[in-house]
Simulated assay, not measured.
Amino acid sequence: MVTVEKRPAPRVARPPRRTSVQLKYVMAVTGAVMFLYLVAHMLGNLKIFLGADALDTYAAWLREIGEPALPSETTLWLIRVVLGVSLVAHIVSATILARRARRARPVRYAHRKPVQGSYAARTMRWGGVIIALFVVYHLLDLTTGTLNPHGVHGEVYANVVADFAPQRWYVTLAYTLAVVAVGFHVRHGLWSALQTFGRSSAASQNTLKGVALGIAVVLVAGFLSVPFAVLTGLVA
Rank of each mutant, 00 (worst) to 15 (best):
V156W: 01
F164H: 09
Q205T: 09
Q195A: 14
V85D: 01
L76N: 08
V2T: 14
G154F: 09
M124C: 05
L55Y: 04
D141W: 15
L87K: 10
I96N: 06
P149W: 00
A158H: 06
S192G: 11
K47D: 09
K209L: 08
L36C: 07
G154D: 02
W77S: 02
V85C: 03
L83A: 07
L234N: 12
A165N: 06
Y157E: 04
Y157I: 01
L224S: 11
G84F: 09
V135K: 04
T232W: 02
T74S: 03
E64C: 04
A94W: 11
V235N: 02
P10I: 05
V26Q: 07
T143E: 14
M34E: 00
D53Y: 10
S200R: 12
A9L: 09
G145S: 06
A40V: 04
L23K: 09
A165H: 14
P15H: 04
D53W: 11
V26K: 07
H138D: 14
T143V: 12
V82D: 07
V12Y: 00
L213D: 01
L23T: 11
L62F: 06
A162T: 03
R100C: 07
K113A: 09
R125F: 06
L133M: 11
A236R: 10
T74H: 03
M1Q: 10
T75F: 14
P227T: 00
A69R: 08
P227C: 05
L38H: 05
G222M: 05
L83C: 11
V179Q: 03
A9D: 12
T95N: 13
T196L: 06
S200E: 11
P149Q: 03
R122P: 13
H150C: 01
S86H: 04
S118E: 05
G154Q: 05
F223H: 08
A94T: 14
V136Y: 14
V179W: 04
V39G: 01
L208T: 15
K47F: 15
D163M: 12
F197I: 10
R125W: 04
M42F: 05
A120V: 09
S204Y: 07
V33T: 08
G233E: 03
V88N: 04
P149K: 02
P15R: 14
A59D: 02
T3D: 09
G214D: 02
Y25G: 13
